[in-house]
Simulated assay, not measured.
Amino acid sequence: MTLREVLAHAEQRARLSSQKHGDLQYVVAASSGWSRSDLLLRLDQPAETGTQAFVEHAAQQLADGCAAEYLTGYTAFCDIVVRVREGIFVPRPETESLVQMAGDFITDQDRPRATVLDLCSGSGAVALALAARLPQVAVVGLELDPISVSCSRESALDLGLSERVRFVQGNVLATWGLALADFRSRTDVIVSNPPYVREQRLFPAHASSPREPVQALYGGTSGMVFYKRIIAQACDWLRPGGLLLLEIDDGLEEAILNLFERYGLQGGRWSPDLRGLPRYAEARRAE
């Protein structure tokens, strides 16, 4: 059988949806060390021994709701590749804008040796991408989940960034003051993509990728639990003029801007994602 026939047979056997067709090709290519172009060039060549069993297994896993990135063990983010495994939230493309925005602030403010805190750092993608972009920046990621912390540290070693990026296990809602005490009033940027899905949106959000951890999505009944904690503490951790940068859910923007004002942060504003929905919010500590 050709590789094309193997793929078609596996998709049919697993009843894989058309939306997952590209995911299966991605898994096969990545697991073989190929680019997508390499895969396309090999479609009409005879499949290698063992390929059919692997492809059928991958197709069934995808049909059962497994993220493609869990099958390959990594994901691309900005200009880097980070490790992921089941139980770790897979970073989304829209989160790459946080890296761009934080990097632009550090460059524009001429803070080449900036210190950055990444709260709810998950896979470590934001922290690592920012450090890869700015070679003198130091980043600390705080994350509750021990599997995510371990995987982030492995990615830092893979990328040669472990001297400038470290990951600490801690709870943003409870213990980050103790875990990050050395950074009080010394942080140039706080960046966070916390759990923000509110209760009424949780089921459809989790159903779209059911093997991802629900705790990485759920932000409480209103979606505001993590934002309230982070914004309330931000001025204690930022240097004068420092930036707080958040990824947000649409519909929460006004509540977040109100919190900025309540806790003395200045210049609060939100900006949209590529779909035009409110997705990012930022404010600064007064000079």
Rank of each mutant, 00 (worst) to 15 (best):
Q12Y: 04
L16E: 08
S17N: 04
G33R: 10
W34T: 12
R36T: 11
L39Q: 08
L39A: 05
A47H: 13
E48L: 10
T49K: 09
A68Q: 11
I88L: 06
E94R: 01
E94Y: 04
T95A: 02
E96I: 02
M101L: 15
A102E: 08
F105P: 05
P112A: 01
S121T: 13
S121N: 12
G122F: 00
V126C: 06
L130P: 01
A132C: 12
R133T: 15
P135M: 02
E143I: 01
E143K: 09
L144H: 04
D145Y: 05
P146L: 06
C151I: 03
L157S: 12
D158M: 12
G160L: 07
V165D: 10
G170E: 04
V172Q: 01
L173H: 00
L173E: 01
A174D: 06
W176M: 12
L180I: 07
T187H: 02
T187V: 13
S192H: 12
P194T: 02
R211C: 10
E212K: 11
Q215G: 08
L217Q: 09
S222D: 15
S222N: 13
F226L: 13
R229Q: 14
C235H: 06
C235M: 04
D236P: 06
P240L: 07
L243F: 01
I256C: 03
F260G: 11
Y263P: 10
D273V: 11
R279I: 13
Y280I: 03
R284D: 08
